[in-house]
Design a protein around this nucleic acid. Structure first.
Lengths: 214, 214
DNA sequence: AAAGCAATACCACGATAGTAGTAATTCAAT
DNA sequence: ATTGAATTACTACTATCGTGGTATTGCTTT
Protein backbone atom coordinates (compact mmCIF):
# COMPACT_ATOMS: atom_id res chain seq x y z
CA UNK A 1 0.00 0.00 0.00
CA UNK A 2 1.18 3.46 -0.89
CA UNK A 3 1.79 5.94 1.91
CA UNK A 4 -1.17 8.33 1.98
CA UNK A 5 -0.20 11.93 2.37
CA UNK A 6 -1.96 15.24 2.96
CA UNK A 7 -0.43 18.64 2.34
CA UNK A 8 -1.02 21.90 4.16
CA UNK A 9 0.63 24.70 2.23
CA UNK A 10 -0.64 28.14 1.38
CA UNK A 11 1.28 28.77 -1.83
CA UNK A 12 -0.67 27.26 -4.71
CA UNK A 13 2.31 26.56 -6.92
CA UNK A 14 4.23 24.70 -4.28
CA UNK A 15 1.18 22.78 -3.20
CA UNK A 16 0.56 21.65 -6.74
CA UNK A 17 4.18 20.77 -7.29
CA UNK A 18 4.22 18.64 -4.18
CA UNK A 19 1.02 16.91 -5.17
CA UNK A 20 2.39 16.10 -8.60
CA UNK A 21 5.68 14.91 -7.15
CA UNK A 22 3.97 12.60 -4.67
CA UNK A 23 1.42 11.20 -7.06
CA UNK A 24 4.10 10.68 -9.66
CA UNK A 25 6.24 8.62 -7.28
CA UNK A 26 5.62 4.99 -6.66
CA UNK A 27 4.59 4.16 -3.12
CA UNK A 28 3.26 7.64 -2.43
CA UNK A 29 -0.24 8.95 -2.79
CA UNK A 30 -1.33 12.50 -2.09
CA UNK A 31 -4.92 12.16 -0.96
CA UNK A 32 -5.65 15.74 0.07
CA UNK A 33 -4.26 19.25 0.14
CA UNK A 34 -5.29 22.41 1.96
CA UNK A 35 -4.24 26.00 1.71
CA UNK A 36 -4.89 26.88 5.34
CA UNK A 37 -4.92 25.37 8.81
CA UNK A 38 -8.64 25.80 9.48
CA UNK A 39 -9.70 23.77 6.48
CA UNK A 40 -7.15 21.10 7.32
CA UNK A 41 -8.34 20.88 10.91
CA UNK A 42 -11.86 20.27 9.69
CA UNK A 43 -10.97 17.57 7.18
CA UNK A 44 -7.86 15.69 8.27
CA UNK A 45 -9.39 13.95 11.28
CA UNK A 46 -11.88 12.34 8.90
CA UNK A 47 -9.40 11.05 6.35
CA UNK A 48 -6.52 10.24 8.69
CA UNK A 49 -3.63 10.21 6.24
CA UNK A 50 -0.42 8.36 7.08
CA UNK A 51 1.64 11.50 6.82
CA UNK A 52 0.84 15.21 6.74
CA UNK A 53 3.28 17.76 5.36
CA UNK A 54 2.73 21.04 7.15
CA UNK A 55 4.11 24.38 6.13
CA UNK A 56 5.14 26.14 9.28
CA UNK A 57 4.05 29.56 8.07
CA UNK A 58 0.40 29.66 7.17
CA UNK A 59 -1.88 32.66 6.68
CA UNK A 60 -4.29 32.25 9.61
CA UNK A 61 -3.38 29.74 12.27
CA UNK A 62 0.28 28.73 12.16
CA UNK A 63 1.41 25.24 11.29
CA UNK A 64 2.40 24.71 14.90
CA UNK A 65 -1.02 25.58 16.25
CA UNK A 66 -2.47 23.37 13.57
CA UNK A 67 -0.42 20.37 14.67
CA UNK A 68 -1.27 21.09 18.25
CA UNK A 69 -4.93 20.68 17.42
CA UNK A 70 -4.62 17.82 14.99
CA UNK A 71 -2.11 15.53 16.65
CA UNK A 72 -4.37 14.60 19.57
CA UNK A 73 -7.14 13.84 17.08
CA UNK A 74 -5.07 11.54 14.89
CA UNK A 75 -2.39 9.95 16.98
CA UNK A 76 -1.46 7.52 14.21
CA UNK A 77 -0.79 10.23 11.69
CA UNK A 78 2.78 11.48 11.35
CA UNK A 79 3.23 15.21 11.01
CA UNK A 80 6.20 16.56 9.18
CA UNK A 81 7.02 20.25 9.30
CA UNK A 82 8.24 22.02 6.21
CA UNK A 83 10.28 25.08 7.04
CA UNK A 84 12.26 27.50 4.93
CA UNK A 85 15.35 27.82 7.04
CA UNK A 86 16.84 26.02 9.98
CA UNK A 87 14.93 28.10 12.45
CA UNK A 88 15.76 25.98 15.48
CA UNK A 89 13.39 27.63 17.92
CA UNK A 90 10.39 27.33 15.67
CA UNK A 91 11.16 23.74 14.80
CA UNK A 92 11.62 23.02 18.45
CA UNK A 93 8.20 24.48 19.17
CA UNK A 94 6.71 22.38 16.42
CA UNK A 95 8.21 19.23 17.89
CA UNK A 96 6.80 20.14 21.28
CA UNK A 97 3.44 20.56 19.61
CA UNK A 98 3.62 17.00 18.39
CA UNK A 99 5.40 17.10 15.05
CA UNK A 100 7.33 13.96 14.26
CA UNK A 101 10.01 15.40 12.06
CA UNK A 102 10.80 18.22 9.70
CA UNK A 103 12.43 19.03 6.41
CA UNK A 104 13.77 22.24 5.02
CA UNK A 105 11.94 23.39 1.94
CA UNK A 106 15.05 23.37 -0.18
CA UNK A 107 15.38 19.63 0.28
CA UNK A 108 15.62 17.74 -3.00
CA UNK A 109 12.56 15.76 -4.07
CA UNK A 110 14.29 12.42 -3.56
CA UNK A 111 15.35 13.34 -0.04
CA UNK A 112 11.85 14.57 0.68
CA UNK A 113 10.49 11.19 -0.29
CA UNK A 114 13.14 9.52 1.86
CA UNK A 115 12.13 11.64 4.81
CA UNK A 116 8.47 10.78 4.32
CA UNK A 117 9.33 7.09 4.37
CA UNK A 118 11.37 7.63 7.51
CA UNK A 119 8.60 9.31 9.48
CA UNK A 120 6.18 6.75 8.20
CA UNK A 121 8.39 4.01 9.58
CA UNK A 122 8.64 5.65 12.97
CA UNK A 123 11.71 7.77 12.55
CA UNK A 124 12.11 11.46 13.20
CA UNK A 125 14.30 12.94 10.52
CA UNK A 126 16.08 16.04 11.77
CA UNK A 127 19.44 17.72 11.61
CA UNK A 128 21.92 17.07 14.36
CA UNK A 129 21.58 20.70 15.49
CA UNK A 130 17.91 20.28 16.18
CA UNK A 131 18.56 16.89 17.68
CA UNK A 132 20.90 18.51 20.15
CA UNK A 133 18.26 20.98 21.22
CA UNK A 134 15.80 18.22 21.77
CA UNK A 135 18.28 16.06 23.64
CA UNK A 136 19.29 18.93 25.89
CA UNK A 137 15.75 19.83 26.71
CA UNK A 138 15.06 16.28 27.61
CA UNK A 139 18.24 15.89 29.62
CA UNK A 140 17.17 18.89 31.66
CA UNK A 141 13.88 17.27 32.44
CA UNK A 142 15.58 14.05 33.42
CA UNK A 143 18.18 15.50 35.69
CA UNK A 144 16.15 18.21 37.29
CA UNK A 145 16.60 16.29 40.48
CA UNK A 146 18.24 19.39 41.90
CA UNK A 147 21.47 17.70 42.85
CA UNK A 148 22.58 20.45 45.20
CA UNK A 149 19.52 20.02 47.32
CA UNK A 150 19.37 16.26 47.24
CA UNK A 151 23.03 16.00 48.22
CA UNK A 152 22.25 17.79 51.45
CA UNK A 153 19.90 15.06 52.51
CA UNK A 154 20.95 11.79 54.06
CA UNK A 155 20.01 8.41 52.60
CA UNK A 156 17.07 7.99 54.91
CA UNK A 157 15.88 11.50 54.30
CA UNK A 158 15.93 11.04 50.56
CA UNK A 159 14.05 7.82 50.94
CA UNK A 160 11.37 9.56 52.93
CA UNK A 161 11.29 12.41 50.44
CA UNK A 162 10.38 9.89 47.75
CA UNK A 163 7.39 8.77 49.75
CA UNK A 164 6.45 12.35 50.45
CA UNK A 165 6.36 12.96 46.72
CA UNK A 166 3.94 10.10 46.31
CA UNK A 167 1.61 11.80 48.71
CA UNK A 168 1.80 9.24 51.48
CA UNK A 169 0.87 10.22 55.00
CA UNK A 170 3.36 10.03 57.84
CA UNK A 171 1.66 6.93 59.13
CA UNK A 172 1.88 5.23 55.75
CA UNK A 173 5.54 6.05 55.37
CA UNK A 174 6.20 4.76 58.86
CA UNK A 175 4.53 1.48 58.02
CA UNK A 176 6.49 1.09 54.79
CA UNK A 177 9.77 1.62 56.58
CA UNK A 178 8.84 -0.17 59.81
CA UNK A 179 9.46 2.94 61.82
CA UNK A 180 7.49 4.98 64.29
CA UNK A 181 5.38 7.83 62.94
CA UNK A 182 7.30 10.06 65.30
CA UNK A 183 10.54 9.15 63.64
CA UNK A 184 9.11 10.12 60.28
CA UNK A 185 8.07 13.41 61.82
CA UNK A 186 11.62 14.03 62.98
CA UNK A 187 13.12 13.14 59.62
CA UNK A 188 10.70 15.38 57.81
CA UNK A 189 11.40 18.21 60.18
CA UNK A 190 15.09 17.82 59.39
CA UNK A 191 14.41 17.63 55.67
CA UNK A 192 12.41 20.85 55.80
CA UNK A 193 15.12 22.54 57.78
CA UNK A 194 17.83 21.49 55.33
CA UNK A 195 15.75 22.58 52.38
CA UNK A 196 14.64 25.76 54.10
CA UNK A 197 10.96 25.13 53.51
CA UNK A 198 8.01 24.45 55.71
CA UNK A 199 5.59 22.29 53.81
CA UNK A 200 5.51 19.16 51.75
CA UNK A 201 4.68 20.92 48.52
CA UNK A 202 7.45 23.47 48.96
CA UNK A 203 9.95 20.71 49.57
CA UNK A 204 8.89 18.86 46.44
CA UNK A 205 8.98 22.00 44.35
CA UNK A 206 12.44 22.73 45.62
CA UNK A 207 13.90 19.32 44.93
CA UNK A 208 12.06 18.26 41.82
CA UNK A 209 11.33 21.33 39.70
CA UNK A 210 7.99 23.05 40.01
CA UNK A 211 5.28 21.16 38.20
CA UNK A 212 2.65 23.48 37.00
CA UNK A 213 4.85 26.51 36.70
CA UNK A 214 8.04 26.53 34.64
CA UNK B 1 43.20 24.36 16.89
CA UNK B 2 42.64 20.64 16.48
CA UNK B 3 39.75 19.02 18.30
CA UNK B 4 41.17 17.20 21.33
CA UNK B 5 39.73 13.75 21.83
CA UNK B 6 39.88 11.03 24.47
CA UNK B 7 38.91 7.42 23.90
CA UNK B 8 37.39 4.95 26.32
CA UNK B 9 37.44 1.50 24.74
CA UNK B 10 38.40 -1.82 26.26
CA UNK B 11 39.61 -3.60 23.12
CA UNK B 12 43.26 -2.72 22.59
CA UNK B 13 43.22 -3.13 18.83
CA UNK B 14 40.26 -0.88 18.29
CA UNK B 15 41.58 1.69 20.73
CA UNK B 16 44.87 1.83 18.88
CA UNK B 17 43.21 1.98 15.51
CA UNK B 18 41.08 4.89 16.60
CA UNK B 19 44.08 6.69 18.05
CA UNK B 20 45.98 6.28 14.84
CA UNK B 21 43.02 7.36 12.75
CA UNK B 22 42.50 10.49 14.80
CA UNK B 23 46.12 11.50 15.04
CA UNK B 24 46.55 10.88 11.35
CA UNK B 25 43.70 13.21 10.45
CA UNK B 26 44.12 16.91 10.21
CA UNK B 27 42.15 18.86 12.78
CA UNK B 28 41.92 15.95 15.21
CA UNK B 29 44.17 15.09 18.09
CA UNK B 30 43.79 12.08 20.35
CA UNK B 31 45.18 13.21 23.67
CA UNK B 32 44.31 10.22 25.85
CA UNK B 33 42.87 6.73 25.81
CA UNK B 34 41.62 4.42 28.52
CA UNK B 35 40.66 0.79 28.62
CA UNK B 36 38.12 1.13 31.40
CA UNK B 37 35.68 3.57 32.97
CA UNK B 38 37.38 3.86 36.34
CA UNK B 39 40.66 5.06 34.90
CA UNK B 40 38.84 7.48 32.62
CA UNK B 41 36.83 8.89 35.50
CA UNK B 42 40.02 9.62 37.38
CA UNK B 43 41.81 11.32 34.50
CA UNK B 44 39.34 12.97 32.16
CA UNK B 45 38.21 15.72 34.55
CA UNK B 46 41.83 16.89 34.66
CA UNK B 47 42.47 17.01 30.95
CA UNK B 48 39.00 18.06 29.79
CA UNK B 49 39.12 16.97 26.15
CA UNK B 50 36.76 18.52 23.61
CA UNK B 51 35.22 15.19 22.77
CA UNK B 52 35.24 11.76 24.41
CA UNK B 53 34.42 8.62 22.47
CA UNK B 54 32.90 6.10 24.84
CA UNK B 55 32.36 2.45 24.16
CA UNK B 56 29.02 1.55 25.63
CA UNK B 57 30.11 -1.89 26.79
CA UNK B 58 33.05 -1.71 29.14
CA UNK B 59 34.37 -4.40 31.49
CA UNK B 60 33.65 -2.81 34.91
CA UNK B 61 31.40 0.21 34.97
CA UNK B 62 29.40 0.65 31.78
CA UNK B 63 29.89 3.53 29.42
CA UNK B 64 26.56 4.92 30.53
CA UNK B 65 27.51 4.97 34.20
CA UNK B 66 30.79 6.50 33.18
CA UNK B 67 29.12 9.37 31.34
CA UNK B 68 26.77 9.85 34.23
CA UNK B 69 29.73 10.49 36.47
CA UNK B 70 31.84 12.46 34.05
CA UNK B 71 29.33 14.77 32.38
CA UNK B 72 28.63 16.81 35.51
CA UNK B 73 32.37 17.18 36.05
CA UNK B 74 33.14 18.44 32.57
CA UNK B 75 30.10 20.17 31.17
CA UNK B 76 32.02 21.54 28.19
CA UNK B 77 33.15 18.13 27.03
CA UNK B 78 31.03 16.36 24.44
CA UNK B 79 30.46 12.67 24.96
CA UNK B 80 29.85 10.43 22.01
CA UNK B 81 28.72 6.87 22.50
CA UNK B 82 30.08 4.12 20.31
CA UNK B 83 27.74 1.18 20.09
CA UNK B 84 27.83 -2.01 18.05
CA UNK B 85 24.23 -2.10 16.93
CA UNK B 86 21.29 0.24 16.94
CA UNK B 87 20.26 -0.73 20.43
CA UNK B 88 17.71 2.01 20.88
CA UNK B 89 17.04 1.50 24.57
CA UNK B 90 20.69 1.56 25.53
CA UNK B 91 21.40 4.60 23.41
CA UNK B 92 18.40 6.26 24.91
CA UNK B 93 19.74 5.60 28.39
CA UNK B 94 23.09 6.99 27.37
CA UNK B 95 21.49 10.19 26.14
CA UNK B 96 19.61 10.51 29.39
CA UNK B 97 22.91 10.08 31.20
CA UNK B 98 24.26 13.07 29.32
CA UNK B 99 25.74 11.75 26.09
CA UNK B 100 25.61 14.24 23.23
CA UNK B 101 25.47 11.85 20.33
CA UNK B 102 26.39 8.39 19.20
CA UNK B 103 27.79 6.44 16.31
CA UNK B 104 27.57 2.81 15.42
CA UNK B 105 30.93 1.07 15.45
CA UNK B 106 30.65 0.03 11.85
CA UNK B 107 30.62 3.67 10.76
CA UNK B 108 33.26 4.49 8.20
CA UNK B 109 36.28 6.49 9.39
CA UNK B 110 35.31 9.53 7.38
CA UNK B 111 31.80 9.55 8.80
CA UNK B 112 33.19 9.08 12.28
CA UNK B 113 35.29 12.19 11.81
CA UNK B 114 32.25 14.02 10.48
CA UNK B 115 30.27 13.02 13.56
CA UNK B 116 33.03 14.21 15.86
CA UNK B 117 33.01 17.58 14.16
CA UNK B 118 29.26 17.68 14.50
CA UNK B 119 29.19 17.06 18.26
CA UNK B 120 32.05 19.46 18.67
CA UNK B 121 30.03 22.14 16.94
CA UNK B 122 27.02 21.53 19.14
CA UNK B 123 25.14 18.98 17.10
CA UNK B 124 23.83 15.62 18.23
CA UNK B 125 24.35 13.11 15.45
CA UNK B 126 21.85 10.30 15.69
CA UNK B 127 19.66 8.20 13.47
CA UNK B 128 16.10 9.26 12.91
CA UNK B 129 14.91 6.23 14.87
CA UNK B 130 16.68 7.34 18.00
CA UNK B 131 15.62 10.89 17.32
CA UNK B 132 12.04 9.73 17.39
CA UNK B 133 12.48 8.09 20.76
CA UNK B 134 13.99 11.23 22.15
CA UNK B 135 11.32 13.44 20.66
CA UNK B 136 8.54 11.24 21.99
CA UNK B 137 9.96 11.14 25.45
CA UNK B 138 10.21 14.87 25.46
CA UNK B 139 6.75 15.35 23.99
CA UNK B 140 5.42 13.31 26.89
CA UNK B 141 7.11 15.54 29.38
CA UNK B 142 5.75 18.60 27.70
CA UNK B 143 2.19 17.51 27.42
CA UNK B 144 1.92 15.58 30.63
CA UNK B 145 -0.56 18.20 31.68
CA UNK B 146 -3.02 15.39 31.71
CA UNK B 147 -5.55 16.99 29.45
CA UNK B 148 -8.35 14.64 30.35
CA UNK B 149 -8.11 15.60 33.98
CA UNK B 150 -7.60 19.29 33.46
CA UNK B 151 -10.58 19.46 31.10
CA UNK B 152 -12.83 18.27 33.89
CA UNK B 153 -12.01 21.27 35.97
CA UNK B 154 -13.61 24.66 35.56
CA UNK B 155 -11.61 27.81 34.93
CA UNK B 156 -11.60 28.81 38.58
CA UNK B 157 -10.71 25.33 39.68
CA UNK B 158 -7.72 25.19 37.36
CA UNK B 159 -6.62 28.55 38.59
CA UNK B 160 -6.73 27.34 42.16
CA UNK B 161 -4.94 24.14 41.18
CA UNK B 162 -2.07 26.26 39.94
CA UNK B 163 -1.75 27.88 43.32
CA UNK B 164 -2.03 24.54 45.03
CA UNK B 165 0.92 23.35 43.00
CA UNK B 166 2.94 26.27 44.25
CA UNK B 167 2.31 25.15 47.78
CA UNK B 168 0.19 28.10 48.87
CA UNK B 169 -2.13 27.72 51.82
CA UNK B 170 -5.86 28.20 51.49
CA UNK B 171 -5.59 31.58 53.15
CA UNK B 172 -2.87 32.70 50.74
CA UNK B 173 -4.85 31.58 47.72
CA UNK B 174 -7.90 33.36 49.05
CA UNK B 175 -5.93 36.58 49.40
CA UNK B 176 -4.53 36.32 45.88
CA UNK B 177 -7.98 35.86 44.40
CA UNK B 178 -9.82 38.20 46.79
CA UNK B 179 -12.06 35.39 47.92
CA UNK B 180 -12.98 33.90 51.24
CA UNK B 181 -10.92 31.01 52.53
CA UNK B 182 -14.14 29.05 52.71
CA UNK B 183 -14.68 29.48 49.01
CA UNK B 184 -11.23 28.10 48.34
CA UNK B 185 -12.09 25.17 50.57
CA UNK B 186 -15.19 24.49 48.53
CA UNK B 187 -13.38 24.73 45.23
CA UNK B 188 -10.67 22.41 46.43
CA UNK B 189 -13.20 19.94 47.70
CA UNK B 190 -14.77 19.95 44.24
CA UNK B 191 -11.39 19.60 42.57
CA UNK B 192 -10.57 16.59 44.71
CA UNK B 193 -13.89 15.04 43.97
CA UNK B 194 -13.52 15.50 40.23
CA UNK B 195 -10.02 14.10 40.29
CA UNK B 196 -10.98 11.33 42.66
CA UNK B 197 -8.24 12.09 45.13
CA UNK B 198 -8.14 13.31 48.69
CA UNK B 199 -4.99 15.28 49.17
CA UNK B 200 -3.07 18.07 47.58
CA UNK B 201 -0.13 15.90 46.60
CA UNK B 202 -2.34 13.25 45.03
CA UNK B 203 -4.13 15.88 42.99
CA UNK B 204 -0.86 17.31 41.70
CA UNK B 205 0.52 13.89 40.88
CA UNK B 206 -2.64 13.12 38.98
CA UNK B 207 -2.70 16.26 36.90
CA UNK B 208 0.96 16.99 36.39
CA UNK B 209 2.86 13.71 36.22
CA UNK B 210 4.53 12.34 39.30
CA UNK B 211 7.84 14.01 39.95
CA UNK B 212 10.10 11.73 41.84
CA UNK B 213 8.68 8.53 40.47
CA UNK B 214 8.46 7.74 36.77
C1' DA C 1 -39.63 28.11 33.45
C1' DA C 2 -36.93 24.59 35.45
C1' DA C 3 -32.81 22.12 35.92
C1' DG C 4 -27.92 22.28 36.24
C1' DC C 5 -23.50 23.95 36.93
C1' DA C 6 -20.07 27.52 38.33
C1' DA C 7 -18.84 30.51 41.78
C1' DT C 8 -19.38 32.41 46.02
C1' DA C 9 -19.71 31.71 51.25
C1' DC C 10 -20.41 29.91 56.11
C1' DC C 11 -20.17 26.46 60.13
C1' DA C 12 -18.28 22.58 62.51
C1' DC C 13 -15.58 18.40 63.30
C1' DG C 14 -11.86 15.25 63.12
C1' DA C 15 -7.52 14.08 60.75
C1' DT C 16 -3.08 15.25 59.28
C1' DA C 17 0.77 18.10 59.23
C1' DG C 18 4.14 21.27 61.09
C1' DT C 19 6.79 23.12 65.25
C1' DA C 20 9.43 22.72 69.52
C1' DG C 21 11.99 20.44 72.91
C1' DT C 22 14.41 16.34 74.23
C1' DA C 23 17.13 12.07 74.16
C1' DA C 24 19.34 7.39 73.28
C1' DT C 25 22.21 4.78 70.08
C1' DT C 26 25.42 4.06 66.52
C1' DC C 27 28.93 4.99 63.32
C1' DA C 28 32.41 7.84 61.15
C1' DA C 29 35.75 11.34 61.41
C1' DT C 30 38.92 14.23 63.96
C1' DA D 1 38.83 9.69 72.65
C1' DT D 2 35.59 12.96 71.59
C1' DT D 3 32.82 15.37 68.52
C1' DG D 4 29.26 15.24 65.21
C1' DA D 5 25.91 13.58 62.19
C1' DA D 6 22.37 9.99 61.26
C1' DT D 7 18.74 7.30 62.91
C1' DT D 8 15.61 6.21 66.03
C1' DA D 9 11.76 7.75 69.33
C1' DC D 10 8.67 10.31 72.60
C1' DT D 11 5.50 14.30 74.32
C1' DA D 12 2.77 18.28 73.59
C1' DC D 13 0.75 22.12 71.16
C1' DT D 14 -0.97 24.67 67.07
C1' DA D 15 -2.02 25.31 62.34
C1' DT D 16 -3.76 23.73 58.29
C1' DC D 17 -6.28 20.51 55.70
C1' DG D 18 -10.03 17.37 54.34
C1' DT D 19 -14.93 16.41 54.77
C1' DG D 20 -19.83 17.07 55.37
C1' DG D 21 -23.74 19.77 55.25
C1' DT D 22 -26.00 23.95 53.45
C1' DA D 23 -27.15 28.21 50.84
C1' DT D 24 -27.33 32.25 47.54
C1' DT D 25 -26.50 34.19 43.10
C1' DG D 26 -26.08 34.13 38.21
C1' DC D 27 -25.64 32.04 33.82
C1' DT D 28 -26.75 28.26 30.42
C1' DT D 29 -29.09 24.80 28.52
C1' DT D 30 -33.03 22.48 27.84
Amino acid sequence: MAISIAIIEDQDEIRNMLTILLNGSEGFSCIASYSNAEEAIAEIPKIKPDVVLVDIHLPGQSGIACINTLKPLCAETQFMIRTSLEDTDTIFEALKAGANGYIVKSTSPSKLLDAIVEVYHGGSPMSSQIARKVVSSFQNNESKKNKTEVALLSKRENEILQFLSKGLRYKEIADKLFLSTETIRTHIRNIYEKLQVNSRTDALNKVFGSKGNP
